[in-house]
Design a protein around this nucleic acid. Structure first.
Length: 574
RNA sequence: GAUCUCUUAGCUCAGCUGGUAGAGCAAUACACUUUUAAUGUAUGGGUCCAGGGUUCGAACCCCUGAGGGAUCACCA
């Protein structure tokens, strides 16, 4: 296996070898101790401040501006950028100027890792910089990095924008587009803030199975895999709800899990096959308590992420400041469509859905119809955080019936910017009711709803031992992060969004050419000469090939013996 | 899955009515001791996504395919 190298890559490999020739290890093993980070230096230092006479940082070289015996460069570490000033006679105090003239000016490229030691100063143009006394090569970069430049007004030139490269090679995106790092730092703040709130409340983080014999807890198509030793199918979880409730049965007061869930469905800018959901279950609480808990939680999260409860999402500004409005779903439908569905039969609801122009079919039960009406006509209106409450019983098979109306459930979804971010219940803990609801799901399944849930007998058994009244919540971490970072697509808040597998083109190695009789020194240049495989070589006519190769030799002034026609002809007989 | 659209140098992009390619940055060489999108001069760099077709001639027109993006459908 080999890969076609660009001119720039070949040059960098040459530089690598020249470094070795100078006795410099381009990939040294030793620890490199830094005294500061770039951000420390650029924020703490100013002209005349003591304590910066001998500082040391390490990072990636991002620009080089060479002016004869002096150069400026930008070094980027995990905290940010710092300009360094490299002067020939400072870096090379003796007669030997190789470290500057050769190593720094020629053999080091943008993307290489170096460590520098020196003192801080401010340039004539007012930029805080490190005056380098000692330069250490830490790691060579063999591929040219896209060079993104930003001018004094903050205009960005030649930014890497191609989504395919950005997502497939996220490491390049992260190197070159600093804002991308901020998105992921904010994502981390979302998670760490939630974890802190839960831990302070005394709830316990737990882990539950990802490989499940029955994919329960949500209406979704699962991924199927197979366990060899047991010889059984297993499913990647679509939710962890049923396992967390088993733990409440087992006696924990509150449990939560940041879970990767997997759903074998379409991909678009709000759906990735694997995604992160935080689910939490707390004993002796109901959904009213949970609403108060969630609004306080999200206020904390928004503050931790953006230092304000206001979040700009596209053209809207959303306030996460508690409390949030509460609207029963049937009131929402009445308000936005004029339809009063309270107490209506499935037939009436279907007719109502048709009356406002929705496409319906017979596989849709009453719950799904109401969900459709809400999704089509109402959802978009809820920009500010709003709890939509009291969903019909049919679309919530794991949720307790409403204490005042058995047709409804004690459920809410939190809508923000017209989209769902959280879903919570007073959890159903009556095992007899739960079994009936599962059986209703089976009927839906028989009608053709391929997302209806399976019956989880072990879960029923657990409930039969008794589960305290419990409220549960799920929050889509990806979507919440999208909102708090003002990103339109889920791919922007996932490090490695799912993509079609990439095809890597490989070219023949020198030994493959040698196998048909190509001389060793010639075999090394065949690929560069345009013959990526032995087969492509042999498609040529011998005389033409002979001409082309010797032409290539002449054009590139290669230090190789010219090929004889008889030799080229012999390759075709090998 | 449907429709539209894009794919040209390491990156961002031009490329007219069909005449086998250009710019800026990056790279290479030289000059230059406080620059900052450093500058000046010179140079190299391309399977124009892939495969077919039309044509004397295709980056360009047609077909097929691959990949990306957008919209819609599906999907809590």
């Amino acid at each position: 296996m080999a890969r076609l190298l660009s001119e720039q890559e070949l040059l960098r490999r040459e530089s690598l070898n020249k470094l070795k020739g100078l006795g410099i290890d381009p990939f040294p093993a030793a620890e490199y101790q830094v005294s500061h980070y770039a951000k420390d230096l650029s924020t703490q230092y100013s002209e005349g401040v003591d304590g910066f006479e001998n500082v040391c940082i390490a990072g990636r070289l991002m620009t080089k501006r060479i002016m004869g015996k002096a150069s400026f460069a930008v070094l980027t570490d995990s905290t940010g950028d710092l300009q360094i000033y490299v002067n020939r006679d400072e870096v090379c105090p003796g007669e030997d100027k190789a470290m500057y003239n050769d190593v720094f000016k020629k053999l080091l490229d943008i993307g290489d890792f170096v460590g520098v030691r020196g003192h801080m100063f401010v340039t004539q143009t007012g930029e805080i910089s490190l005056h380098v006394k000692e330069l250490t090569v830490l790691s060579k970069s063999l591929r040219p990095l896209p060079v993104v430049k930003t001018d004094g007004d903050g205009n960005v030139y030649d930014a890497l924008t191609d989504p395919e490269i950005r997502y497939r090679q996220r490491y390049v995106d992260l190197i070159v587009n600093p804002r991308v790092k901020d998105i992921f730092r904010k994502r981390n703040r979302v998670i760490s803030t939630m974890r802190r709130v839960f831990d302070e409340a005394g709830y316990m983080e737990v882990e539950t199975p990802i490989l499940q014999p029955i994919p329960g807890g949500a209406a979704a198509r699962p991924f199927i895999t197979h366990h060899n030793a047991l010889d059984v199918p297993l499913y990647l979880r679509v939710a962890n709800e049923l396992y967390l409730k088993r733990l409440i049965v087992g006696g924990f007061e509150g449990v939560y899990e940041f879970a990767k869930d997997f759903r074998n469905e379409g991909m678009d800018k709000t759906h990735n096959p694997e995604f992160t959901v935080m689910e939490i279950y707390v004993a002796y609480k109901d959904y009213h308590w949970m609403m108060r808990f969630v609004e306080n939680l999200l206020e904390d999260v928004a503050l931790a992420v953006n230092a304000t409860t206001d979040a700009v999402i596209g053209a809207n500004t959303v306030s996460f400041k508690a409390p949030y409005a509460r609207v029963p779903i049937l009131d929402a439908i009445k308000k936005h469509t004029g339809l009063d569905l309270a107490g209506k039969s499935e037939h009436d609801v279907r007719e109502a859905a048709k009356s406002i122009g929705l496409e319906v079919d017979d596989s849709m039960g009453k719950g799904k119809l109401i969900d459709e009406i809400f999704g089509e006509k109402c959802e978009e209106h809820y920009i500010q955080p709003t709890y939509i409450t009291d969903y019909p019983v049919e679309m919530s098979p794991l949720c307790k019936k409403h204490r005042d109306n058995p047709e409804l459930t004690e459920r809410f979804e939190l809508m923000v910017n017209g989209k769902e971010v959280a879903n919570a219940y007073s959890e159903l803990n009556d095992p007899i009711d739960q079994l009936e609801r599962f059986e209703d799901q089976l009927k839906l399944s028989a009608k053709g709803d391929d997302e209806a849930m399976f019956i989880d007998q072990d879960f029923i058994r657990a409930l039969e031992y008794g589960m305290p009244p419990t409220s549960g919540l799920g929050i889509g971490i990806d979507r919440l992060t999208m909102m708090l970072t003002n990103q339109e697509s889920i791919q922007e808040v996932l490090f490695f969004p799912q993509m079609r597998p990439e095809k890597f083109e490989s070219v023949a190695g020198p030994e493959e050419f040698q196998a048909i009789g190509v001389p060793k020194d010639w075999s090394a240049v065949m690929v560069q000469a345009g013959f990526h495989t032995v087969a492509s070589l042999l498609e040529q006519k011998p005389a033409g090939l002979h001409q082309k190769l010797n032409g290539y030799r002449k054009k590139n002034k290669l230090d190789l013996p010219a090929l004889q026609l008889e030799l080229v002809e012999s390759w075709f007989n090998a």
